[in-house]
């Protein structure tokens, strides 16, 4: 396997990969930089890269204009709540399919995934009516339930692929050792599947955090998460690039950092265990 790789080759690879990497990352970098500029500097021609008067003013203005903390908490509650609720329902379901498969297991899995393909707009109005009926409109609870439901198929699927890698004999051993079903799942399966469960939690947290159909359409002032916070900047009003950048940075930074720290688990999770 080992073959001498010329330094020249390696330098070319490095330059090319870094070039493309920076190009892909540039919009985010530029947004972060712009958030520290004044509005005038933000639209300066030629664009200012690093040499401008760094300022935190935009962040202050954004915070003053709309209460960032409130949106942030809503996002954390909704994404976190829907993910936790989902995983509690998904673990038993995935256990069933992975360890007690039947002829219908695969059909059920595919059907679950197919519910994700249902166009959300097709059911927007009924959901809207139901939400009014049950007083869930613009509530954290309502949004948590909806996001849990739209991510549930992905959770079940991901956990299923992880669980299938755990040898059934170990669970049988637990059964022989006198474990009830509850102990079997709680003390044997779950600890063994921690890496898989962690990446399932992470991916779904990110998906819920970034979800931008239901969060925009089912919330107003009370339960609006960061997606809605940022959408309020969609109609331009004078010079607003620096403020928009500051708000954008505030909306994406938490998840960006979380994502970077956990990218290893994420990559595995993203592939649905289908690509090793």
């Amino acid at each position: 396997m080992a073959r001498a790789i010329t330094n020249e080759r390696k330098i070319i690879n490095t330059v090319a990969a870094w070039g493309i990497g920076l190009l892909i990352f540039f919009p985010i970098l530029w947004t972060i930089l712009t958030s520290f500029k004044t509005e005038a500097q933000a639209i300066n021609d030629p664009p200012l890269f690093l040499f401008f008067d760094w300022t935190l003013e935009n962040y202050a203005v954004v915070q003053e204009r709309s209460n960032y903390g409130r949106f942030l908490w809503n996002s954390i509650f909704i994404a976190g709540g829907s993910t936790l609720l989902g995983v509690i329902i998904a673990i038993p379901a995935a256990w069933s399919m992975a360890f007690v498969p039947s002829k219908r297991t695969k059909d059920i899995l595919l059907w679950m995934l197919s519910t994700k393909m249902l166009p959300a707009v097709g059911v927007l109005y009924p959901i809207y009516l139901l939400f009014i009926q049950f007083g869930l409109l613009d509530s954290i609870l309502g949004l948590t339930i909806v996001l849990m439901l739209i991510n549930l198929p992905i959770m079940v699927w991901m956990l299923y692929t992880y669980f299938r890698e755990i040898p059934g004999e170990i669970l049988e051993a637990a059964r022989m050792d006198g474990a009830t079903l509850r102990s079997e799942i709680l003390y044997v399966l779950t600890p063994m599947a921690i890496p898989g469960i962690a990446s399932t939690l992470l991916l779904n947290f990110i998906l819920a955090w970034n979800e931008a159909f239901w969060t925009l359409n089912l919330t107003a002032a009370q339960a609006a998460p960061l997606t809605a916070f940022i959408a309020s900047y969609s109609s331009p009003e004078g010079l607003f690039y620096a403020k928009l950048s500051a708000a954008s940075t505030m909306a994406i930074l938490p998840i960006l950092i979380l994502g970077w720290f956990s990218q290893k688990q994420l990559v595995r999770g993203l592939t649905f265990g289908a690509v090793k």
Binding site: N210, A228, I230, I252, L256, L258, G259, W260
Partner: peptide, 8 residues
């Protein structure tokens, strides 16, 4: 990185 950026 772009994967983590919310669509809005």
């Amino acid at each position: 990185a772009p994967f983590f950026v919310m669509p809005t």
